[in-house]
Amino acid sequence: MLSTQAIENIKKAIAKYPTKKSASMDALMIAQKECGHLTEDILLEIAHLLDMPPVQLNQVAAFYTMYNKRPVGKYHIQVCTNISCSLLDSEHIVQFFSKRLGIKKGETTSDKKFTLSEVECLGSCGTAPMMQINDDYYENLTEAKVEEILKTLK
């Protein structure tokens, strides 16, 4: 069940558009921030709020990569491996995380703290290699910098 605050935020999103359906992307992200990932029950609840057939909302949730259809760790580490980052050895950063956390790409640590993903260009090519952890960008990455960042993630 979504909280009263989440429902309130979804209603605010609806007010931005002439059609309720347009708020589906905002609503999915509001729900994801609260619940971590999107379950079938949550999708049904949102579909009801937006007067949308559930199948249409499922299509939206399935299409966009940022909606988590499966649980992810408390910290979702997303390393860009597109061209600018890969030229500056982002693969090494991915491998370093993999070794350091004992998980492969796409996996979550057993304590549910970290999920490691490889992602497409995040629009920060001038400061490659870079990554995103939850909502924040981390740029000009090195092994030492990654170690420092990991220390701050409690």
Partner: peptide, 10 residues
């Protein structure tokens, strides 16, 4: 003016 956030689709 309203902000509409995408969700990861080039």
């Amino acid at each position: 003016i309203y902000v509409h956030k995408g969700a990861g689709a080039y």
